[in-house]
Protein backbone atom coordinates (compact mmCIF):
# COMPACT_ATOMS: atom_id res chain seq x y z
CA UNK A 1 0.00 0.00 0.00
CA UNK A 2 2.78 2.40 0.96
CA UNK A 3 4.50 2.95 -2.44
CA UNK A 4 1.21 3.88 -4.10
CA UNK A 5 0.18 6.28 -1.36
CA UNK A 6 3.68 7.75 -1.37
CA UNK A 7 3.48 8.32 -5.12
CA UNK A 8 0.16 10.13 -4.81
CA UNK A 9 1.43 12.19 -1.91
CA UNK A 10 4.65 13.29 -3.56
CA UNK A 11 3.29 13.85 -7.05
CA UNK A 12 -0.21 15.06 -6.34
CA UNK A 13 -0.67 16.34 -2.79
CA UNK A 14 2.65 18.17 -2.57
CA UNK A 15 2.32 19.86 -5.99
CA UNK A 16 -1.25 20.88 -5.17
CA UNK A 17 -0.10 22.32 -1.85
CA UNK A 18 2.60 24.18 -3.76
CA UNK A 19 -0.20 25.82 -5.76
CA UNK A 20 -1.57 27.18 -2.50
CA UNK A 21 1.88 28.49 -1.59
CA UNK A 22 2.32 30.23 -4.95
CA UNK A 23 -0.84 32.22 -4.29
CA UNK A 24 1.06 34.36 -1.81
CA UNK A 25 3.72 35.56 -4.23
CA UNK A 26 3.88 37.91 -7.21
CA UNK A 27 4.71 37.59 -10.85
CA UNK A 28 8.26 38.72 -11.59
CA UNK A 29 8.49 41.74 -13.91
CA UNK A 30 9.27 39.52 -16.90
CA UNK A 31 7.33 36.43 -15.87
CA UNK A 32 7.86 33.55 -13.47
CA UNK A 33 7.72 33.99 -9.72
CA UNK A 34 9.17 36.70 -7.53
CA UNK A 35 9.94 34.93 -4.25
CA UNK A 36 11.16 38.08 -2.49
CA UNK A 37 7.81 39.46 -1.25
CA UNK A 38 4.80 37.67 0.15
CA UNK A 39 1.49 39.27 -0.73
CA UNK A 40 -2.24 38.84 -0.56
CA UNK A 41 -2.61 40.72 -3.84
CA UNK A 42 -3.58 37.67 -5.86
CA UNK A 43 -6.55 37.04 -3.59
CA UNK A 44 -8.00 40.48 -4.04
CA UNK A 45 -7.34 40.19 -7.75
CA UNK A 46 -9.06 36.82 -8.02
CA UNK A 47 -12.16 38.23 -6.37
CA UNK A 48 -12.35 40.97 -8.98
CA UNK A 49 -15.82 40.78 -10.54
CA UNK A 50 -14.18 39.96 -13.88
CA UNK A 51 -12.58 36.72 -12.75
CA UNK A 52 -15.53 35.75 -10.59
CA UNK A 53 -17.78 36.24 -13.60
CA UNK A 54 -15.55 33.95 -15.69
CA UNK A 55 -15.72 31.37 -12.91
CA UNK A 56 -19.49 31.69 -12.62
CA UNK A 57 -19.85 31.57 -16.37
CA UNK A 58 -17.81 28.36 -16.46
CA UNK A 59 -20.07 26.99 -13.74
CA UNK A 60 -23.14 27.99 -15.75
CA UNK A 61 -21.85 26.33 -18.92
CA UNK A 62 -20.84 23.22 -16.96
CA UNK A 63 -24.27 23.12 -15.29
CA UNK A 64 -26.07 23.50 -18.62
CA UNK A 65 -24.01 20.68 -20.10
CA UNK A 66 -24.75 18.57 -17.02
CA UNK A 67 -28.51 19.08 -17.23
CA UNK A 68 -28.64 18.40 -20.96
CA UNK A 69 -26.50 15.30 -20.49
CA UNK A 70 -28.87 14.01 -17.80
CA UNK A 71 -31.93 14.70 -19.94
CA UNK A 72 -30.43 12.73 -22.82
CA UNK A 73 -28.71 10.02 -20.84
CA UNK A 74 -31.27 9.11 -18.19
CA UNK A 75 -33.85 7.93 -20.72
CA UNK A 76 -31.09 6.27 -22.73
CA UNK A 77 -29.85 4.34 -19.69
CA UNK A 78 -33.45 3.51 -18.80
CA UNK A 79 -34.04 2.19 -22.31
CA UNK A 80 -30.98 -0.04 -22.04
CA UNK A 81 -32.23 -1.35 -18.71
CA UNK A 82 -35.63 -2.11 -20.24
CA UNK A 83 -34.08 -3.92 -23.20
CA UNK A 84 -34.06 -7.75 -23.23
CA UNK A 85 -31.46 -9.11 -20.81
CA UNK A 86 -29.21 -10.62 -23.48
CA UNK A 87 -28.93 -7.27 -25.29
CA UNK A 88 -28.11 -5.14 -22.26
CA UNK A 89 -24.39 -5.77 -22.02
CA UNK A 90 -23.85 -5.13 -25.71
CA UNK A 91 -25.96 -1.97 -25.69
CA UNK A 92 -24.14 -0.66 -22.66
CA UNK A 93 -20.80 -1.53 -24.22
CA UNK A 94 -21.79 0.32 -27.38
CA UNK A 95 -22.80 3.36 -25.34
CA UNK A 96 -19.50 3.50 -23.48
CA UNK A 97 -17.17 2.63 -26.34
CA UNK A 98 -16.72 6.19 -27.70
CA UNK A 99 -15.48 7.27 -24.27
CA UNK A 100 -12.35 5.21 -24.81
CA UNK A 101 -11.15 6.97 -27.88
CA UNK A 102 -9.10 10.13 -27.93
CA UNK A 103 -10.84 13.19 -26.50
CA UNK A 104 -9.16 15.53 -28.99
CA UNK A 105 -10.35 13.42 -31.89
CA UNK A 106 -13.92 13.26 -30.60
CA UNK A 107 -13.88 17.03 -30.25
CA UNK A 108 -12.31 17.51 -33.65
CA UNK A 109 -15.09 15.46 -35.23
CA UNK A 110 -17.49 18.23 -34.28
CA UNK A 111 -15.37 20.86 -36.03
CA UNK A 112 -15.78 18.81 -39.20
CA UNK A 113 -19.53 18.52 -38.64
CA UNK A 114 -20.34 22.03 -37.46
CA UNK A 115 -18.15 24.46 -39.38
CA UNK A 116 -19.77 26.86 -41.88
CA UNK A 117 -18.65 24.71 -44.81
CA UNK A 118 -18.94 21.51 -42.76
CA UNK A 119 -21.01 18.38 -43.14
CA UNK A 120 -24.19 19.61 -41.43
CA UNK A 121 -24.32 22.96 -43.22
CA UNK A 122 -23.53 21.28 -46.53
CA UNK A 123 -26.33 18.76 -46.09
CA UNK A 124 -28.83 21.41 -45.01
CA UNK A 125 -27.88 23.63 -47.95
CA UNK A 126 -28.09 20.67 -50.33
CA UNK A 127 -31.61 19.75 -49.29
CA UNK A 128 -32.55 23.41 -49.50
CA UNK A 129 -33.38 23.84 -45.81
CA UNK A 130 -31.10 26.85 -45.53
CA UNK A 131 -29.60 29.37 -47.93
CA UNK A 132 -26.97 30.79 -45.56
CA UNK A 133 -24.81 28.48 -43.43
CA UNK A 134 -25.92 28.36 -39.80
CA UNK A 135 -23.39 29.63 -37.23
CA UNK A 136 -22.99 26.29 -35.46
CA UNK A 137 -19.32 26.41 -34.57
CA UNK A 138 -17.22 28.77 -32.44
CA UNK A 139 -19.90 29.65 -29.91
CA UNK A 140 -21.35 28.52 -26.62
CA UNK A 141 -23.69 26.09 -28.36
CA UNK A 142 -20.74 24.22 -29.86
CA UNK A 143 -18.89 24.13 -26.54
CA UNK A 144 -21.88 22.76 -24.63
CA UNK A 145 -22.57 20.24 -27.38
CA UNK A 146 -18.94 19.12 -27.24
CA UNK A 147 -19.07 18.67 -23.46
CA UNK A 148 -22.35 16.75 -23.56
CA UNK A 149 -21.05 14.54 -26.35
CA UNK A 150 -17.80 13.72 -24.64
CA UNK A 151 -19.29 12.83 -21.28
CA UNK A 152 -22.51 11.14 -22.38
CA UNK A 153 -21.06 7.61 -22.30
CA UNK A 154 -20.00 7.96 -18.70
CA UNK A 155 -23.33 9.39 -17.56
CA UNK A 156 -25.22 6.54 -19.23
CA UNK A 157 -22.95 4.12 -17.41
CA UNK A 158 -23.45 5.77 -14.01
CA UNK A 159 -27.23 5.90 -14.35
CA UNK A 160 -27.49 2.39 -15.76
CA UNK A 161 -25.52 1.02 -12.79
CA UNK A 162 -27.94 2.76 -10.42
CA UNK A 163 -30.99 1.48 -12.32
CA UNK A 164 -29.63 -2.03 -12.31
CA UNK A 165 -29.20 -2.03 -8.54
CA UNK A 166 -32.80 -0.92 -8.16
CA UNK A 167 -35.07 -3.59 -6.76
CA UNK A 168 -37.86 -4.05 -9.37
CA UNK A 169 -40.32 -5.05 -6.65
CA UNK A 170 -40.67 -1.39 -5.57
CA UNK A 171 -41.94 -0.39 -8.97
CA UNK A 172 -44.20 -3.44 -9.13
CA UNK A 173 -45.65 -2.65 -5.73
CA UNK A 174 -46.29 0.91 -6.81
CA UNK A 175 -48.03 -0.27 -9.96
CA UNK A 176 -50.07 -2.84 -7.98
CA UNK A 177 -51.25 -0.05 -5.72
CA UNK A 178 -52.70 1.64 -8.77
CA UNK A 179 -50.03 4.23 -9.60
CA UNK A 180 -49.49 4.99 -13.29
CA UNK A 181 -46.18 4.19 -14.93
CA UNK A 182 -45.34 7.90 -15.02
CA UNK A 183 -46.14 8.39 -11.32
CA UNK A 184 -44.15 5.28 -10.47
CA UNK A 185 -41.19 6.60 -12.40
CA UNK A 186 -41.20 10.00 -10.72
CA UNK A 187 -42.13 8.77 -7.21
CA UNK A 188 -40.08 5.58 -7.04
CA UNK A 189 -37.53 5.00 -9.78
CA UNK A 190 -36.09 8.50 -10.08
CA UNK A 191 -35.60 9.16 -6.32
CA UNK A 192 -34.09 5.72 -5.80
CA UNK A 193 -31.55 6.27 -8.56
CA UNK A 194 -30.61 9.75 -7.34
CA UNK A 195 -27.19 8.54 -6.19
CA UNK A 196 -26.28 7.32 -9.68
CA UNK A 197 -27.67 10.45 -11.23
CA UNK A 198 -25.70 12.67 -8.89
CA UNK A 199 -22.50 10.69 -9.47
CA UNK A 200 -22.91 11.16 -13.22
CA UNK A 201 -23.86 14.79 -12.78
CA UNK A 202 -20.87 15.63 -10.60
CA UNK A 203 -18.60 13.90 -13.08
CA UNK A 204 -19.86 15.99 -16.01
CA UNK A 205 -19.88 19.17 -13.98
CA UNK A 206 -16.40 18.80 -12.55
CA UNK A 207 -14.78 17.77 -15.83
CA UNK A 208 -16.64 20.48 -17.75
CA UNK A 209 -15.86 23.36 -15.46
CA UNK A 210 -12.12 22.78 -15.62
CA UNK A 211 -12.15 21.89 -19.30
CA UNK A 212 -9.62 23.49 -21.56
CA UNK A 213 -9.76 21.61 -24.86
CA UNK A 214 -13.45 21.97 -25.71
CA UNK A 215 -13.72 25.76 -25.32
CA UNK A 216 -10.35 26.11 -27.02
CA UNK A 217 -11.22 24.07 -30.11
CA UNK A 218 -15.00 24.52 -30.42
CA UNK A 219 -15.21 28.05 -28.99
CA UNK A 220 -12.97 29.58 -31.65
CA UNK A 221 -11.03 31.41 -28.96
CA UNK A 222 -14.14 33.44 -28.17
CA UNK A 223 -15.12 31.36 -25.15
CA UNK A 224 -13.18 31.96 -22.00
CA UNK A 225 -13.71 29.33 -19.33
CA UNK A 226 -11.72 29.09 -16.13
CA UNK A 227 -9.50 26.33 -17.57
CA UNK A 228 -8.51 28.57 -20.47
CA UNK A 229 -7.93 31.47 -18.13
CA UNK A 230 -5.55 29.36 -16.03
CA UNK A 231 -3.79 28.21 -19.18
CA UNK A 232 -3.47 31.81 -20.39
CA UNK A 233 -2.13 33.00 -17.06
CA UNK A 234 0.56 30.34 -17.11
CA UNK A 235 1.57 30.56 -20.74
CA UNK A 236 0.44 33.88 -22.22
CA UNK A 237 0.61 36.30 -19.29
CA UNK A 238 3.38 34.22 -17.67
CA UNK A 239 1.82 35.03 -14.31
CA UNK A 240 2.21 31.73 -12.46
CA UNK A 241 1.14 32.98 -9.03
CA UNK A 242 -2.14 34.32 -10.39
CA UNK A 243 -2.71 31.18 -12.44
CA UNK A 244 -2.17 29.23 -9.21
CA UNK A 245 -4.69 31.44 -7.41
CA UNK A 246 -7.32 30.73 -10.03
CA UNK A 247 -6.54 27.00 -9.77
CA UNK A 248 -7.04 27.23 -6.02
CA UNK A 249 -10.40 28.87 -6.63
CA UNK A 250 -11.36 26.11 -9.04
CA UNK A 251 -10.35 23.42 -6.55
CA UNK A 252 -12.51 25.15 -3.92
CA UNK A 253 -15.50 25.26 -6.24
CA UNK A 254 -15.09 21.56 -7.03
CA UNK A 255 -14.93 20.70 -3.35
CA UNK A 256 -18.29 22.41 -2.94
CA UNK A 257 -19.75 20.39 -5.81
CA UNK A 258 -18.43 17.17 -4.31
CA UNK A 259 -19.74 18.03 -0.88
CA UNK A 260 -23.15 18.69 -2.36
CA UNK A 261 -23.02 15.35 -4.11
CA UNK A 262 -22.04 13.59 -0.89
CA UNK A 263 -24.97 15.22 0.90
CA UNK A 264 -27.34 14.40 -1.96
CA UNK A 265 -26.32 10.76 -2.19
CA UNK A 266 -26.36 10.46 1.61
CA UNK A 267 -29.93 11.70 1.60
CA UNK A 268 -30.84 9.36 -1.24
CA UNK A 269 -29.44 6.44 0.70
CA UNK A 270 -31.37 7.58 3.79
CA UNK A 271 -34.63 7.60 1.79
CA UNK A 272 -33.92 4.12 0.62
CA UNK A 273 -33.80 2.77 4.14
CA UNK A 274 -36.85 4.72 5.30
Amino acid sequence: MAPGLLWLTVLMIVPCLLIFVLIFFERGTYGGIDWSVATLGNFTRAFDPLYLSILLDSARIALTATIIALLIDYPAAYAIMKAPERWQTSLLFLAILPFWTNYLIRTYAWIVLLNPVGVINNVLTYVGAISQPLPLLYNEFAVILGLVYNYTPFVILAIYSALQRLDPSYAEASRDLGATAVTTFFKITLPLTAAGVSAGAVFVFVLSIGNFITPDLLGGGKMQMIGNLIYDQFLTARDWPFGATLSGLLIALMMIALLMQAVASGRARGDHHA
Binding site: L50, I54, Q224, L229, D232, A237, R238
Partner: peptide, 19 residues
Protein backbone atom coordinates in the same frame (compact mmCIF):
# COMPACT_ATOMS: atom_id res chain seq x y z
CA UNK B 1 7.96 45.30 -27.03
CA UNK B 2 7.85 43.37 -23.78
CA UNK B 3 5.49 45.21 -21.43
CA UNK B 4 7.22 44.29 -18.17
CA UNK B 5 4.99 45.23 -15.23
CA UNK B 6 2.41 46.64 -17.63
CA UNK B 7 1.60 43.04 -18.56
CA UNK B 8 -0.75 42.62 -15.57
CA UNK B 9 -3.09 45.41 -16.59
CA UNK B 10 -2.75 44.35 -20.21
CA UNK B 11 -3.62 40.72 -19.57
CA UNK B 12 -6.54 41.68 -17.37
CA UNK B 13 -7.92 43.73 -20.25
CA UNK B 14 -7.48 40.77 -22.56
CA UNK B 15 -9.36 38.57 -20.08
CA UNK B 16 -12.16 41.12 -20.03
CA UNK B 17 -12.43 40.91 -23.80
CA UNK B 18 -12.30 37.13 -23.79
CA UNK B 19 -14.94 36.90 -21.06
Amino acid sequence: RDLGDGMKAFSKTVSEIMA
